[in-house]
Amino acid sequence: MQKTALTRRTLLLPAVVILLGLSIFPLLFSLALSFGDWGLGRGIPYEWRGLSNYAALLADGRYRNAAFNTVLYVVVTVSIQYVLGLALAWGLFLRPPGGRIFRVLFIFPMMLAPVAVGYMWRLMFQSRIGAANFFLAALGFEPVRWLSARWFAMSVVMMAEIWQWTPFMFLFLYAALMNVPTSPIDAALVDGASRFQVFRHIVLPMLMPISIAVIMLRAVEAVKILDTVYVITHGGPGNTTESLTMYGYNVGLQYFNLGYAAAIAYTLLLVVVAIAIPVIIFFKKEVSYT
């Protein structure tokens, strides 16, 4: 029996050690940093500052702008991803010709490096050599300097995000659709319900828990947005399209103000936790263990 106990502990030990050392310890370290000041590289030792970093955030216009942008990126991209993903999943559920090929094709974007995806879209919207302006020219419009104007630049970032992550919504909604029991659908059809009625009153309610889960999962990831912004706009023009992660990166590793960067990061963490807790509770209810 003693040998069993040893095996049991050995199985879990490496995972616990790694996560404690590289995840939980840095998490607490960051918390301590956010309450202080540490000029790394300038030879200034750690100094406790209480809540002064957080107080400074309230008055920081660049922070407010980054927070606003981040919320906008999340709300716009995740909602559009959901609607498109659901439409594609429903489309494939109706068994069109070539369904298997579409299914693989549709998941391509989510497999690719976000940095490369960002570059792809930057290339499309480049003002002199981008496909977008060539097509505008063909239709008789003036070329647009997409990345030099805040709202155009943000739309390009959003398009890249929607393109990359609609597949995620599609994939998991489609998998859920394939597990929906068919008998209520068949019964409704026999009773003369239209396809739209079946979708609206039977399928959609059954997909509700899954829908909430995928939306929250995407939102938790989208809040951390960095790669596409970094490559497409680099936060510009000025700092107008910057996200919270990008601002935290700039403060921490460009200006080496670790305390302030940690405070920015911690406000982001609070948002993530607020979104994630409902998801975790949801999953906890769904999963049963031996």
Binding site: A15, L19, L22, S23, I24, F25, P26, L27, F29, S30, L33, L40, V220, V223, K224, L226, L244, T245, G248, Y249, G252, L253, L258, A261, A262, I264, A265, Y266, L268, L269, V272, V273, A276, I280, F283, K284, Y289
Partner: peptide
């Protein structure tokens, strides 16, 4: 199991500054 999984949602920007140090 949930504690292990929940580590995945932590934003890298929170962890990476201390990891850098």
């Amino acid at each position: 199991a949930f504690w292990i999984l929940s580590n995945r949602v932590l934003p890298p920007i929170v962890l990476v500054l201390p990891i850098f140090i």
